[in-house]
Design a protein around this nucleic acid. Structure first.
Length: 312
DNA sequence: ATCCAGGCTCCTG
DNA sequence: CAGGAGCATGGA
């Protein structure tokens, strides 16, 4: 089953793929030269979704058993949300001209939109895992969690991993999570979240209908979710375009560097800069993270080359 | 070796 | 109510 999605212009799928390729959160995505591929649960059924660039459009293919028109509709809405294909980004660069530093970055990111993590529960768990620790270790923890309780989808001779739902995660205990190097409090946050959702005490889907200023406090009410996590989830899970996790260590570091502070910017300083990106603060966060990842990759390559050279 | 990582909760004074 | 310890490990 296949269909086509036509994003608004400009749409830079290549930049989206470049982001996902280097993003530590992309454990389950399979990114190739021109495709995004991932196993997802659609209407209660496991499906392999492949999105491929086709000129200015996106070709989407579904592989799974007994798929119907309803599944296609659900997937189309999901894909359009994941890649923000309906957003009107035509005014972004013009809107941020008052800030030449960010305008320069925005010029290099034309057509890039904040890409979502496909599932809200996964987004929150990932954000909690990422609290305090470095992203490399966080990615390792997420991978270990999926290996521990994730499910698998076999398509042809390939196997794809699915992120566990709250019910599956609620079934494990602290000792299980300790074996994959979760701290006690992190286990507590994740298990509490999973159990509240499973028990019907917490309905994440309610968040879809709320504006930013109402969704934020509701998320922060959950154990283990503070301001950074709530803002991160609004951006990466719910697709709010104007939310910036200003306390983010990576953002503070690269923004401090970009504006010549010689140190990390404070959370307050990040929010002050962000006022000039009003309307696009989520995009800005995503673009800065993109720049950060590109820097890290360049550094990694240089280090590698240096080692190669040293070895002769 | 020491400090800080894509923070948060809880306890102290 | 501000400030700080603790978390579990890895990289700089």
């Amino acid at each position: 089953m296949r269909f086509r999605v036509q994003p608004t212009a400009p749409f830079a799928f290549d930049l989206a793929l470049a982001y996902l390729r280097t993003s530590p959160s992309s454990i389950l995505e399979v990114i190739s030269e021109d495709t995004y591929r991932r196993a997802l649960r659609i209407n209660g059924q496991d499906v392999l979704v492949t999105a491929r660039a086709a000129g200015t459009a996106l070709d989407v293919e579904l592989a799974g058993r007994s798929l119907g028109p309803a599944d296609q509709r659900t997937t189309e809405l999901l894909v359009r949300r994941l890649f923000a294909t309906d957003a009107d980004v035509s005014t972004l660069v013009g809107d941020v001209q008052a800030d030449p530093v960010f305008a320069d970055l925005a010029n290099r990111c034309v057509g890039l939109r904040p890409i979502l993590i496909p599932d809200l529960f996964e987004t929150i768990v990932w954000a909690i895992i990422g609290q305090q620790i470095n992203v490399t270790f966080a990615a390792k923890c997420k991978r270990a969690l999926v290996d521990l309780v994730g499910e698998r989808l076999r398509v042809g001779d390939q196997e794809y991993l699915l992120f566990p739902g709250p019910e599956r995660l609620a079934a494990v205990n602290e000792a299980d999570l300790a074996t994959i190097q979760f701290s006690r409090q992190k286990s507590r946050y994740v298990l509490n979240l999973s159990r509240e959702i499973s028990a019907g005490q917490l309905d994440l889907d309610e968040l879809w209908h709320l504006p930013t200023d109402e969704a934020l406090p509701r998320l922060e009410h959950v154990l283990g979710i503070g301001r950074w996590t709530a803002e991160y989830v609004l951006l990466r899970g719910l697709g709010h375009p104007d939310v910036i996790p200003a306390g983010d260590g990576g953002l503070r570091r690269i923004i401090g560097h970009a504006y010549g502070l010689g140190r990390s910017a404070s959370e307050t300083e990040v929010r002050q800069h962000a006022e000039r990106w009003a309307g696009w603060r989520g995009y800005a966060a995503f673009y800065w993270w993109f720049a950060l990842q590109q820097d890290a990759m360049t550094r990694g390559r240089l280090d590698h080359e240096r080692r190669e050279t040293a070895r002769g």
